[in-house]
Nucleic acid binder design. Structure first.
Lengths: 338, 338
DNA sequence: TCTGGCACTCGGCGCATACGAGTGCCAGCT
DNA sequence: AGCTGGCACTCGTATGCGCCGAGTGCCAGA
């Protein structure tokens, strides 16, 4: 177990390195932080920390930088989430309050998060899995063509075209719509399949094919849309690290465009509360020198999706975590209101 | 007026520079292209071209690179759009044919375009202005709450919540829906305002408030959605120019995130046919060292939106133009089919 | 009008040197 | 036992210098 002072040394190293982006030496440390001991002592502590793998030197005669393991310890034991200041809170609220619909909420959130953290922001659209059906609408477009519109309690709307196996009368359609809604309105998506299972049985034989088609399209929509969409923003912030980048920036941009990858990563993060994935903890290779801070958000107590930030491992964790948490909280409020 | 050979020299310079990304000298030119004259002659021509502002030297003792003006001349007079090869065409078609809905078409298009050109791709969602109404649906969500769903002929769906000033019966709603659709279905968006102007007059006095609210929401939707959305992709390709970049890449990323800027730029480009904006021809400062190749696309003969590519001025114009044109054509076909 | 020749320019590259921040270790002090 | 000051050592970076070669402009001659 590391002594209290060694932990403080680690904390100081992380803070300085994040601030200056340069390896930090023993002398600078004792000066900038009131450690009350001499550089030589700090050097001993550093040697011990390096031995344990919390820090490393890029070159033999350079200062130390934290390793992924060092950041991990910092985040777990040494850092406190930095709460937003009053003005910041108000700014967040003002910015989000102007949103007119779900798309706008998501778009504003991603911009806001990118601006607050000066990093790349990622916002997942509210999941359909946990939400409930508000309404299902069926619109006749042609004798054998129907449009299915699904409206969720989070305000999301999905539509699908359906080609019916046989012509389907307007009255039958109205009938189906009524029965369908009476069964699924207000219910959770996960419950829908068994709720509609025996629905075709109440219809004339010649209509059952169409009814089944409509139902299977509905179920498909639920499943397919389970593959969430997400929106990213603030990629220009990647260029702030132009020193080491060009090489690092490319795989990150590539990973960000592969939404599948990001979604999987977000999915892997434990659900309630904030998660921080540091460097190599990220399964995806291109993101090995970045950290991801994410948290679930939702309209009720339950998280329906995640949002977060992707940045260099050398990031201001307390500030970033504070911003992410605050934004998630306000987005949840907005969603609950609408 | 420039002599025929000087034009050929300019063409050769552009082609070589695009290929090698290095300033091209007189000797290399005569070797790589069968100009049939000596380097000294080419030097004279180069001096003349430089005099006219078509090429420039980065340093006194270096080769020449084309200026924006040089690229302009190349694109206007010296280059032919390079048609896609058969396999390329088939690949495009296969890739786009798998799309399931409009979102998917756009998403696939942007990916495809980025991959084909190895540059940043931009695709604008089909505009509502030129499209026609396929159907308007009104759904009662609560006694005084209605959801408006607008379906366009391009397959786009927009929805709006409406809080009615007074409760509104289901039968009145059905009545309104029927009358509304009989007037606007199949009509152009721009014609809608005058088509529904006198609609409230046919309703009971107590319902007119609600009818007006619904109508104004509909008109609002048309106008608001006139501010198009667009999708970009392939930003990772920006890092291919890491040499001079880091400095150049940042403003480009910033401009790309400012959708307003991009939309304005796309809007400025003349509508029918392909447009190429080179370097400083782009009004936006951050894009002064990039070129934009864009073209309108649409389901019918008429363009409903634009798509294109953003890349360095030093790009393969014939190839890029070929890819952009081909993709636009196929997207148009897909839209027409659905 | 084109060509070969020639002197000149200047950016890039390799190399050697100096500098300095930072380290590890050790002996001595408390 | 832990802390401190001192000291020799490492090594990455900055700097200066000289060479090389691609490329140019100009000029005289075909």
């Amino acid at each position: 177990m590391l002594s209290e002072r060694r932990l403080q040394v680690l904390r100081a190293i992380v803070q300085d390195y994040v601030g200056t982006e340069e390896p930090v030496g023993s002398k600078a440390l004792t000066e900038r932080h009131g450690l009350g001991v001499s550089p030589a002592t700090v050097r001993n502590d550093m040697a011990a920390l390096e031995e344990e793998g919390y820090i490393a030197q890029p070159h033999t005669s350079a200062g130390r930088i934290p390793t992924d393991k060092g950041y991990r310890l910092f985040v777990d034991k040494l850092a406190e989430v930095k709460p937003m200041t009053g003005p910041e809170r108000r700014a967040i609220q003002n910015f989000l309050d102007g949103a007119v619909d779900l798309d706008d909420v998501v778009a504003r959130t991603v911009r806001l998060l990118a601006q607050l953290t000066r990093q790349v922001a990622v916002v997942q659209y509210p999941s359909l899995t946990r939400s409930t059906v508000r309404h299902v609408e069926l619109l006749p477009l042609a004798p054998a063509r129907v449009m299915l519109v699904l409206i969720t309690d989070t305000g999301r709307v999905e539509q699908r075209m359906i080609d019916c196996p046989a012509p389907f009368g307007e009255t039958s359609l109205a009938d189906l719509r009524a029965r369908l809604n009476s069964r699924v309105a207000g219910r959770r998506f996960t419950d829908v399949p068994q709720l509609v299972e025996d629905l075709p049985e109440g219809f004339d034989v010649e209509d059952r094919g169409t009814v089944s088609t409509v139902l299977s399209t509905l179920l498909e929509t639920l499943v397919e849309e389970n593959e969430e969409r997400l929106v990213i923003g603030g990629t220009a912030n990647l260029t702030r690290f132009a020193h080491d980048f060009p090489l690092t920036i490319r795989p990150v941009l590539e990973a960000l465009e592969e939404q599948v990858v990001l979604l999987r990563l977000l999915g892997e993060m434990q659900n309630p509360g904030m998660t921080v994935r540091i460097g190599h903890e990220n399964a995806h290779e291109g993101l090995n020198s970045t950290s991801i801070v994410s948290v679930g958000y939702g309209s009720g107590g339950e998280a329906v999706a995640k949002l977060g930030v992707v940045g260099p491992t050398r990031m201001d964790y307390p500030g970033t975590m504070g911003a992410v948490r605050a934004v998630a909280r306000y987005v949840g409020q907005i969603l609950a209101e609408s």
